[in-house]
Simulated scan of single mutants.
Amino acid sequence: MQDVSELPDDHLFKPAKKIESNFMRKLLLLVAFSYTAAFAQPKTYSTANAHSHNDYQQSAPLFSAYNLQFGSVEADVILANDELLVAHTERDVPQHRTLEELYLKPIQGYIQANKGYPYADTSRKLILMLDIKSEAIPTLNKIVDILQKYPELIHTPKFKVLISGNKPDPSSYISFPSFVVFDGLLSTRYSKDALSRIIMLSDNFVTYSTWKGTGPIPENVFEKLQKLITKAHGLGKEVRLWNVPDFDDAWSKVIELGVDYIDSDSIKALAQFLKKQSGKAS
């Protein structure tokens, strides 16, 4: 697959024929700028831009991140004995923590309480990222089957189930119901059909750098990541990086890069950091 960074800068805007008019050229540039700006990094960051990584490992899964009004929570899932269990490896399966009890039923309750919205603040959205750890297609088919039992979840525009981890081939994304969407890889180029079902582009920070969070990110790494993130925004996709050092100095650098979701296991500390950021912006 072709690296996104290899795409020409004007790949989204190719006129059918040469346009001679200066006016039309300026108009096209204005449209291009407006399109990209619509997906630029948030002007003000809040916990709406926070992602609770491996949320099920928190002392109060879902509940803690939800009370902090996080925009995204992540749960690893394994299909075992025809059940969807929240588990990182097979060793965790005996704990028998079901996806329905830990996440789907509580989120349905929130949406019912808020009259069709995940949060009382109706501008806020919520993503449930399901990181599949078992075989892709059987697990995803089971996710689809179970979600159909929860009409509030599949018909709420402000709530999305995002499939990550072990995924089927991108060419098959359009064959799954529209109430499941997919997490793509920032450095990968996708077909138009696959992109239509991808809402987020993520990547592992350590594949780009060994930076530990102190001092500036190496300039070449910063520029490469910023270029990829800008192109992702140009495609209308939100961006998340994982395995970034998990403390405030590093979060500040991630914000400078322009990501849309800050990935963290330290959700209370991240919430406090983002509250300060919001105060600075106001």
Rank of each mutant, 00 (worst) to 15 (best):
Q2T: 12
D3Q: 13
V4N: 04
S5G: 08
S5V: 11
L12E: 10
P15C: 03
E20R: 03
S21D: 08
S21A: 04
R25K: 14
K26G: 10
L29P: 00
L29F: 06
L30K: 14
V31F: 14
A32I: 11
Y35S: 09
T36I: 07
A40N: 10
K43N: 05
T47P: 06
T47G: 02
A48D: 15
A50Q: 09
S52M: 06
N54V: 07
A60D: 14
F63S: 15
L68S: 09
Q69E: 15
Q69L: 14
F70K: 10
S72A: 15
E74C: 13
D76S: 09
A80N: 14
N81V: 05
N81A: 14
R91L: 09
V93W: 08
V93G: 10
Q95K: 14
T98F: 05
E100T: 09
E101N: 12
P106D: 00
I107L: 03
D121K: 02
I127F: 13
M129T: 14
D131W: 10
D131C: 10
I132H: 06
I132P: 07
K133Q: 08
S134A: 11
S134K: 08
S134I: 03
A136L: 07
L140R: 06
N141H: 09
I143S: 00
I143Y: 00
I146T: 08
I146C: 00
I146Y: 00
L147D: 00
P151N: 01
E152W: 08
E152P: 02
T156D: 03
F159E: 02
L162M: 12
G165E: 04
G165A: 03
K167V: 11
D169Q: 08
D169L: 09
S172L: 14
S172W: 02
I174K: 13
S175C: 00
F176D: 05
P177V: 04
P177N: 06
F182H: 01
F182V: 01
S187K: 12
T188H: 11
S191R: 02
K192S: 11
D193G: 01
A194R: 04
S196K: 06
I199R: 06
I199F: 06
L201V: 08
N204C: 04
N204P: 01
F205S: 02
Y208F: 15
Y208M: 02
S209K: 02
T214F: 07
P216V: 05
P216F: 01
I217D: 02
I217P: 02
V221A: 11
F222N: 02
Q226Y: 08
Q226I: 00
K227H: 14
I229W: 10
T230V: 08
H233W: 01
H233N: 10
G236Q: 05
K237G: 05
N243R: 15
V244E: 03
D246K: 07
F247Q: 04
D248G: 02
D249M: 06
S252Q: 15
V259G: 11
D260M: 06
Y261W: 15
S264N: 13
D265T: 15
K268N: 13
L270Q: 08
K275Y: 10
K275F: 07
K275P: 01
G279P: 00
S282L: 14
S282H: 15
